[in-house]
Lab assay of single mutants.
Amino acid sequence: MDVFMKGLSKAKEGVVAAAEKTKQGVAEAAGKTKEGVLYVGSKTKEGVVHGVATVAEKTKEQVTNVGGAVVTGVTAVAQKTVEGAGSIAAATGFVKKDQLGKNEEGAPQEGILEDMPVDPDNEAYEMPSEEGYQDYEPEA
């Protein structure tokens, strides 16, 4: 019985440690998101679009440190934060509304985080759909 109880105690310690790591990862992701939003706020009209992409990228980098179902929630929060940063930029006159959601080359930025393969159960990952990809044929 002692062996059984000791095993359960060790398992509990492992769960607590994993929860603490997840909590730490979420806190880091939130900190990076805040950094990115402050970065966007300090940019001029020309830099705002690039700044919004930076927020998304920093958040995406930190999301990889967070495991399990938390990833889905962090990704949703990050996307809403990026959308909010863009709205703030438009409201303050840093950028025109028609410039939001495009990178410096004018290509749409939507789907940055949505296409990231995420499995809350950590069982399997699927690649994003290939609808947006084109076949590449090298020139002879």
Rank of each mutant, 00 (worst) to 15 (best):
I88W: 13
G106I: 12
A78Q: 04
E35D: 11
E35W: 15
G41I: 04
G36N: 12
L113C: 04
E57D: 12
M127V: 12
A27L: 15
E126S: 03
V3K: 01
N103E: 10
Q109E: 12
K97R: 11
D119Q: 10
K10V: 13
A56K: 14
P138S: 07
G67N: 06
V49E: 02
K43C: 14
S87P: 10
T59A: 12
E83Y: 14
T75D: 05
T54Y: 11
K60M: 12
L38T: 06
K32H: 15
Q79A: 08
Y39G: 03
K97D: 13
V49K: 07
K80R: 09
G25F: 12
E104G: 09
T64D: 07
H50M: 14
G41K: 02
A11G: 03
T59M: 01
V71P: 03
G67T: 12
S42I: 13
A89T: 11
P120S: 10
A30D: 00
V26Y: 11
V26D: 00
G67P: 01
G36Y: 03
K96L: 08
V15I: 09
E83A: 15
G41M: 13
L8G: 00
Y39T: 12
K80N: 05
G31F: 05
E28T: 09
A89S: 05
E114H: 08
V118R: 06
V26S: 01
H50W: 10
L8M: 03
Q134E: 05
K43P: 00
A76E: 04
H50Q: 11
K34C: 11
A69C: 15
A56W: 13
G47L: 08
K34A: 07
K10S: 05
A90H: 06
G73C: 13
E28L: 09
V82W: 11
G36R: 14
K34V: 12
E139W: 10
S87L: 12
S42W: 14
M1R: 00
G41P: 00
G93M: 02
K58Q: 09
V82A: 11
K34I: 10
V48N: 00
N103L: 08
I88G: 04
D2C: 03
T44G: 03
E35L: 14
E110D: 06
E13Q: 04
K12D: 00
T33Q: 01
T92E: 04
N122L: 03
T92F: 08
K12W: 13
K6D: 03
V37I: 12
V15P: 00
A11S: 02
V66P: 01
P138F: 13
V70Y: 05
A78K: 03
P108S: 11
V74L: 15
V52R: 01
G86K: 08
V71F: 08
A91T: 09
D121W: 04
F4T: 00
G86L: 09
T33W: 13
G86S: 09
A91M: 10
G73I: 09
K43Q: 03
E28F: 08
L38M: 14
G73L: 13
P120D: 06
G73D: 02
G67E: 03
E126R: 08
